[in-house]
């Protein structure tokens, strides 16, 4: 898992729950990295799960909500650092389609060891895109948050439906439908 995911997660926790909560999570979550992350590094993906579980314990907020909220937060941060990807896309559907075909290839240029999820386009119209999510990380919920946040950026109203193709969540069909306001 890329370090930026960890550093952004920490930042969100600090902003929303305070440094004490973050400190508590780090101290109690039994992290191999001791909570030391840098955006340019790569870390064990299971540590994300440990951090989110701890946060759930402390805050009592459901894990799925936490992950989706983090997805929304992560999109804004990434878009701030790498605005070129949204800039070149005229709308949400085009942007979503470009994840697999353009954004991820660009990521690989900087981090050849990155293990990124696949978003294959199954179907696409002006108002609909069906993506097939495939990842060992099984974090389609994070993707859902990211997509919603992206829709906000493009100022488009959408509904997202997720259907698991594999029960463990490693393959999921994500249907993004534009809705009228």
């Amino acid at each position: 898992m890329k370090g930026i995911v960890f550093t952004e997660l920490f930042e969100m926790i600090e902003e929303s729950f305070g440094l004490e909560t973050l400190d508590k999570i780090i101290n109690e979550a039994d992290l191999q990295s001791d909570g030391i992350y840098t955006a340019v590094g790569t870390y064990d993906a299971s540590e994300i799960g440990k951090i989110v579980s701890k946060l759930h314990e402390i805050s009592n907020i459901p894990i799925a909500d936490l992950v989706e909220t983090f997805g929304r937060y992560l999109f804004k941060s990434l878009n701030k650092i790498y605005p070129q990807f949204t800039e070149r896309a005229p709308d949400l559907m085009t942007f979503l389609e470009s994840i697999n075909s353009y954004i991820h290839p660009e990521v690989y240029k900087l981090y050849p060891d990155a293990e990124l999820p696949h978003f294959d386009t199954v179907e696409k119209t002006d108002s609909l895109i069906i993506l097939k999510y495939r990842s060992k990380r099984k974090m389609y919920v994070l993707a859902k948050g990211l997509i919603h946040s992206a829709a906000d950026f493009f100022n488009e109203k959408i509904e997202v439906e997720i259907e698991l193709e594999e029960d463990d969540g490693s393959v999921a069909i994500i249907k993004v439908q534009k809705v009228d306001e």
Binding site: T7, L19, D23, I26, D34, I36, Y37, T38, A39, G41
Partner: peptide, 12 residues
């Protein structure tokens, strides 16, 4: 927190 930040800096 400071130590983590320093360590993270050194790591990066």
């Amino acid at each position: 927190s400071l130590r983590r930040e320093r360590e993270a800096r050194k790591l990066s």
